[in-house]
Design a protein around this nucleic acid. Structure first.
Lengths: 331, 331
DNA sequence: GTGAAAGCGCTAACAC
DNA sequence: GTGTTAGCGCTTTCAC
């Protein structure tokens, strides 16, 4: 490759000093209009591209924010990243993505070496606490109610409220015997279970919770066992869409039709749930909005404003689809 | 935050020179074993974290590779990224991700300013040619057969062969009247259509191709029209899984059962297709392997070996599931 | 073998 | 107002 063009070359071509070129290029400070033009033209002509490393070193700030995604395979994070990208850009910060599942703790290290100005945790990162303890950069997390780094700000939807809305929806359809497939030991699982149980009790529904997990496999197993019982519930609320899809498969295996024989609801409103062929009733967890709020929070912290430890709860929204209907008895 | 600790602090604590510390830390060159230990201990004690910007500036290389994903929403790229991550790490390169749909051309610019040592294009990037023309970094692309940057190496699966396998599968099941929902104007669409038509002709099947697109919506529309005809095909092969899911919905709307009334196949073997509740016959496009090969190719190019313009075709694999079965007449 | 010194490309105080 | 200069933190060549 040709010898790289530096700001010195630009300055020389434009006939100005190095620092004048720097100022002109960046629009900071005051520069003679004629020289400004000359610098810009020279830069364009030479195809000048600033060196981010040099800039970061000189300016003592990188302008980048590291986004750590819990798992690329589960696309629930997409709206969150969109919101974050939006919010960060308008704060003059640039996001860079990495996958926790694929890279783990070294990813954090790498971001820190890049001197990112902040880190955003998207989703639930297994065992990230250690890697995130004692770091200088501000941390904001979206999508998990449990702080995964000391002092991290948390932005997420109100899982308990979302679960309550599902229960109300099922009750309104006429269901009296409902079940919840939970994910014990996870923060989202606990919150959703609590919401489910509270609201079921309040409405006087016959209800029960069984442990499952956050994956399709877990939902399939638990669903299979649950739906095989003689006094099976008329409606099942799974902790998330993946698990709900597992239940859907289990129902199919058992010859049960959804929603004719059993109604089914999930959580997260994933693209898969929205597919017409699936049509899973779910809860929109407002992750796009969460991303936007998180970006703002992080920008504030970077700018020096307080905000560490803040927790923001967003209102979730029920998305009723074809997987829920009145119970068989009520027909 | 506390004053950042630099390599100077480490050297001082260890009682050695700055350069000795640098050598020891990185394992390059020869350093007295005792000093080596001293440096490492000092670094650990101080919590020293090298500054990537300074390192990149001094070493004149960043060690990072930019991965540009076409669209985070379509999770087909996950195996490719896994393969890439693997391959790059073992070549001593570190991947950083960005989303083309969200950021567009400025993302390329940003990577270039970071002086990435290479760029990987994952999927089909709309209108990326301009942003990728005339750049110095080597470019490798995976998942799209059509070169999106001058001289880019291409690693992808053999789409025509995959389509042929689908046709053979359908023919073996007894289907004689088949249709293809294509994506005209896209490279993958063209290749799959050609494979479909060639093999159908070779096997003497009654076949036709109708234009659709790569999205669920496109598949739904085209599927709806196609399946409403009186002499509808007994099997439909959609250009990808998303489109096939659209067809699945269309069939449901029309009261047709899959696979009893009509068989259905897609392409890409996405996680959604694999869901038990969906069970869509599809084609594994070997994207994990493609990622690994692409990483190797890129590493070679970075190391100075040739490889620009190379094209590698991987063998796809049919994944038969419950959406394909013998045609009604043959039952 | 080891340490001193000269950059790497850019920013930002600070004189002129 | 504009240009000069001293770093930023690390690598690496090159004398000792």
């Amino acid at each position: 490759m040709a010898k790289p063009v530096t700001i010195l070359d630009v300055a020389a071509l434009a006939g100005v000093s190095k620092s004048a070129a720097s100022l002109a290029l960046r629009g900071t400070g005051y520069v003679n209009e004629a020289k400004r033009r000359a610098v810009l033209d020279a830069a364009a002509e030479l195809g000048y591209r600033p060196n981010a490393a040099a800039r970061a070193l000189g300016a003592r700030r990188s302008g980048i924010v590291g986004l750590i995604l819990d798992d690329l395979r589960n696309p629930w994070f997409v709206p969150a990243v969109e919101g974050l990208s939006d919010g960060l850009h308008s704060a003059g910060l640039r996001p860079l993505l990495g996958d926790w599942r694929l890279e783990g703790a070294p990813l954090v290290e790498r971001f820190l070496e890049l001197r990112v100005e902040g880190i955003v945790l998207v989703g639930t990162l297994d065992g990230a606490e250690a890697a995130l303890t004692g770091i200088a950069a501000p941390v904001v997390q979206v999508g998990s109610p449990q702080a995964q780094a000391p002092g991290a700000a948390v932005v997420t939807n109100d899982d308990a409220e979302g679960a309550r809305r599902v229960v109300r929806h099922l009750a309104a359809l006429g269901h009296r015997r409902v079940a919840h497939l939970g994910a014990p030991g996870t923060a989202v699982g606990d919150a959703r279970r609590v919401g489910f149980e509270d609201e079921s009790r309040r409405l006087g529904l016959e209800h029960r919770t069984v442990g499952a997990g956050l994956t399709e496999e877990a939902g399939y197993r638990a669903g299979r066992a649950l739906l095989a019982e003689t006094d099976r519930p008329t409606a099942v609320f799974a902790v998330n869409d993946m698990a709900a899809l597992g239940v859907l498969s289990a129902a199919g295996d058992l010859g049960l039709s959804v929603p004719a024989d059993v109604s089914l609801a999930g959580y997260d409103d994933t693209p898969t749930a929205r597919l017409r062929a699936v049509g899973l009733t779910s809860v929109d967890n407002a992750s796009g909005e969460a991303g936007r709020v998180a970006a703002q929070l992080l920008a504030d912290q970077i700018a020096g404003a307080a905000g560490a430890g803040v927790a923001v709860l967003l209102a979730p929204e029920l998305k009723a689809r074809s997987s829920t209907a009145p119970p068989p008895a009520a027909r």
